[in-house]
Design a protein around this nucleic acid. Structure first.
Lengths: 204, 204, 204, 204
DNA sequence: TATGAATGAGACTTCATTCAT
DNA sequence: TATGAATGAAGTCTCATTCAT
């Protein structure tokens, strides 16, 4: 039986998770210190550890939260209407999601770079299932002649790669273009261009 | 004037840089320990520090080496022949490069995630120049009607994003497909699919 | 605004400063290790660093404490009554002070030997002012015919030199005479002899 | 049988001793590094260790050299003529010596501050003998009524203290007066003043 | 004689975690 | 619930010394 959580508990947990997400996003698990998180959460380190027994526990929580949000986003993807509509809608959702959860996305990248030691078992379950369903859908479109005969997995990877790129590499993008994640026009334009190129790339 | 480097110097420096690249690729600057590097380079820690006075010096060397290799690759890109040929050739080069320098690529990603504190001044120079030249080339193709009227920078980002994805996210890819960076068939196929989609996406 | 210091804080800070003074007195800044200080303060090294962030901070605190005590002692020196009384009283005070703050005195010596890198700016302020006031006083005595016409600064240096000698060189003195700093009779006699010689040396 | 020493050997040994004396003078035994000495001697560290097997050996050599020079200076002191002449001559010799061997003097101070672990057995021999002879001489002067009845040892300490002060505390003196060890006028004047005060202080 | 290369021991400092309140 | 105090383990870096040439 889960302990009943007081109001303060809930607020503080979330404050910690938010702070932790930002710091883990920059420095990964090993490179992050609890001090950094505690400062960003305006909280003493012992108090932080009162909510999350260990650094690793906190990290896992952040990872799982992020992954769940991501899977939630992916699952929203309804295969209805034409391939054009479906793909367009998916890119749109993924783009928005990456921008709104940029820190979570980067925690994820860091985890992957480290070899995904905390994530492998999670990736292997839900995500694998989700991907194989997508592949089936895409194969359907190919068979019905809606899109070009490409290997579905690479279309999926391309969409993931491009949409995440704008979130994960925002530093580089900012250096090269002067535009930040917050620049709505720029991101609108990016989304439009990307969608256009991908759609033309696969639609018959 | 550079100090003359003995045979041992050259060999050991390279051994260290190679080891460091691998470890920094996984854990970033803060997350990496000199112990890890020393072990991977089969060398004692003090001896490692005999070659590179500080962790940061070593890191900077790795970063600069990687960036130079990357810029070298980019510069090889000859704009000759049609847009189709040029883009196709570029994706090919970039793909090969990302695979052969996967660790360097990931060091780069980590650096970007940390906000590129050591890289900003480098990114601002050579890379910016290179990108603006590319943009001009692409605009030329648009004007001459060779390709669709897209915003050039997003084409560039798309190519970078996708080609790096296969190198940086190989862990995720491996979990999902069972294929590793070393699987030549898989990567050949990836390259073919990606190239095809991008070309169809922009060519008229 | 200084942080409020708890009871433990005050006690431990002082325990550390006392221990540090003794060790720095023997080995100077470079020659002293935090281990030595921690052991002498009956404290773990990390805990010591909880109170003083760095070795240098601790050292500076010790130096400034010592200097302030010394300046405090010097300032007590009231120019009242005859030259004889004033000088006699000053030697007395300085002698007592050197004996009671022998360790601080030696930290000071070590700092001077190292070229006073941490102290120069302090020496240049309060001490200079104090010395120039003393010089004026002494010149007054010369003008009024109370003492011989000597260069005042050398009288000051002589008093400093001799009074500190018994504190700083107690090891040598002990080897040669068998008497320690704690031997009250010996130090009483020393003070009497020194005072007598100096007074006869300058009084008319 | 001592190994025959080549010309280079002799020169290098001396170069090392000179450099070592300067560095040990500032930082004492523990605070000094062989690197500092090697750099000051324009020599590689291994080569330095070719001449002196260990840091301690080198330090001992420096200490003994210095002590021997000092004892040599003291022994030159001929008790001939009046107390005035003898004392005056002694202060003069000691003053010159301290100035010309300021670095050695400071190595000596450092050793005393550390508790003279390397020196005790040396101090106990020659120096003790020398001091007791001096005491006899001074007692003679007292008995013959040439000087005031003071405790001889304190006269000796006073002379040592003052003459060394100008060498050991030159940093402080420079800060307060602007004069360096090299300023001949200042030191001539110091010597004159000190001699005058001490002589008046003891002569009848 | 001279020095580049190497290293075990140890220095300063940081960090995750615990304890006591 | 919150935090000041404390610490063992580990991290970066230095140092005296040795080895090989």
């Amino acid at each position: 039986m889960e302990k009943q959580k007081s109001r303060t508990q809930v607020i503080n947990r979330q404050k910690i998770i938010d702070a932790a997400t930002r710091v883990f996003a920059k420095y990964g698990f090993n490179g992050t210190t609890l001090d950094q998180i505690a400062i960003m959460a305006s909280m003493s380190k012992p108090n932080l550890l009162y909510y999350f027994k260990t650094k690793r526990t906190l990290y896992r929580t952040v990872l799982e939260d992020t992954l769940n949000q991501w899977l939630g986003c992916l699952k929203e993807w309804q295969v209805e209407g034409s391939a054009r509509q479906t793909i367009s809608n998916y890119i749109d959702k993924k783009f928005e999601f990456s921008r709104d959860h940029a820190f979570g996305s980067r925690v994820f990248v860091n985890e992957i770079l480290e070899g995904a030691p905390n994530l492998k078992y999670l990736l292997g379950e839900d995500l694998k299932l989700f991907v194989s369903q997508n592949i089936l859908t895409i194969k359907g479109w190919i068979k019905s002649g809606e899109i070009e005969p490409i290997e579905p997995i690479h279309l999926i990877f391309m969409i993931w790669a491009v949409t995440q790129h704008y979130a994960d590499f925002s530093t580089q993008i900012e250096t090269l273009t002067g535009k930040t994640l917050a620049d709505k026009d720029f991101y609108q334009e990016a989304k439009k261009n990307i969608t256009q190129m991908i759609l033309r790339g696969v639609l018959k």
